[in-house]
Write a protein that binds this DNA or RNA. Structure first.
Lengths: 231, 231
DNA sequence: GGTTGTGAATACATTCACAGCA
DNA sequence: TGCTGTGAATGTATTCACAACC
């Protein structure tokens, strides 16, 4: 509810306000938010292929989901389609990017520059999507001063100033499990709003902090449930 | 339904059959399966701390969820607790490991030995949990023969024989997006049952194949939805 | 004709609340 | 007393089905 109220407060033109009027009293389900980036991605691919209009039915085939679900999902945010035709891909994509907040750049810091942290900092997928890692920290002072690409590793004591000065809002955590909760507490204390956690634990965060866990082992462990009887 | 039927077919003693009798006619929700590995992980931590019994209420505090949900989740698989006391941690963990199929070792192959693939093969979190990458492939023949740790990179043409000979059931995909669907098709064609996909696309797979996507960018993009109005 | 957007209907997941037991 | 296991109740998400429109 709060998120939506702020959303409306942020809208810029009357057309958009009218389009979103009906959402004022309905919370957007989180599953819907989780699907929006998937829509953006497939729309991107369609643009590359030169397509310019698509129906919910066609989208559903591409994404293996029902057309009704796609239409319903989009309806939480506005009316983006044209009856009889479908959705203008470029327009829909831009709208979704704005809704998700990925029409702007986001700055992140990395904590933990071990093997995993180095892989993350070298991952080429973040910056094209507007996520830039602009600082790196490690609890081991011996790492301090090391260069990783164009980033200098800093000591944990520099976290507060760096977050403030560089306007960092996302913390990427790649430290050993036992250190994760402590590191996350520090990041939150100094104004980080979102955590991307690679440590294989489930840290506790206050409800106003958004956390996402990347955990391939958990994924595998839920996969084998369905595989174990097939062999 | 099929999965459960097979589950029952696999049970070894009458006690376990009776325990699971009530599940015969109820499909286990997928969300429940996704939570089981999280339970296993926290139980592991509790064992390390020397705890031996825990109540659903205490577990709920640790995992930030309601005791009722934990009890309900477990009830899909059996009766593991004792009234008035709670759950024996070691026993519950072993049961869950068996249910998930992670009481056995699983062999995986990696496709794509670029930066990401190398990071995956070096990730130390898989083998302690019983997931071992025993082969690696790359579509670039120039990579063939390269050693990564103790694994020799092979050509794609060797996929069929290697999967069969080494009894590999999981494919880890770390190739560029455009190649992902093709690679996944090949893996499935040669008997792979589960796919751990790191390519930022949503490949299509037949319903009997289990796929999990690891995609930090999608996670970030759904995170910013909740962050964009807080700044 | 084709397709959207959306209330209503259905299906699914979570939580409640309490009987039953240690 | 304290806790589990579970039907019933509630809350959410998905799907249906159709009026409105191009």
């Amino acid at each position: 509810m709060a998120a939506l109220f702020l959303l409306v407060g942020r809208l810029t033109n009357i057309q958009t306000m009218l389009r979103n009027r009906h959402t004022n009293h309905t919370e957007v389900p989180e599953v819907v938010v989780l699907r929006l980036p998937i829509y953006v991605r497939v729309l991107n691919q369609l643009i590359d292929q030169g397509t310019d209009v698509i129906s919910s039915h066609q989208l559903g085939e591409l994404l293996q989901m029902t057309p009704a679900q796609i239409r319903k999902d989009l309806s939480y945010f506005g009316r983006f389609g044209k009856q009889g035709r479908g959705y203008n891909i470029e327009f829909l994509m831009e709208e979704l990017r704005q809704i998700l907040g990925i029409d702007q750049a986001w700055k992140a810091c990395l904590v933990g520059v071990g093997r995993l942290g180095r892989a993350i900092i070298n991952y080429p997928g973040f910056s094209p999507e507007g996520f830039e890692i602009v600082a790196a920290f490690d609890s081991d002072p011996a790492q301090s001063g090391t260069m990783l690409g164009n980033i200098t590793v800093q000591e944990m004591s520099e976290v507060p100033d760096t977050i403030k000065e560089r306007d960092i809002s996302i913390g990427v955590v790649a430290v050993p499990s036992v250190e994760a909760q402590g590191v996350i507490n520090i990041l939150i204390e100094h104004g980080i709003k979102g955590i991307l956690n690679y440590a294989p634990v489930a840290p506790q965060v206050p409800s106003h902090i958004i956390m996402r866990n990347i955990d391939p082992v958990l994924s595998l462990q839920s996969m084998t449930f369905y595989m174990k009887d097939l062999l």
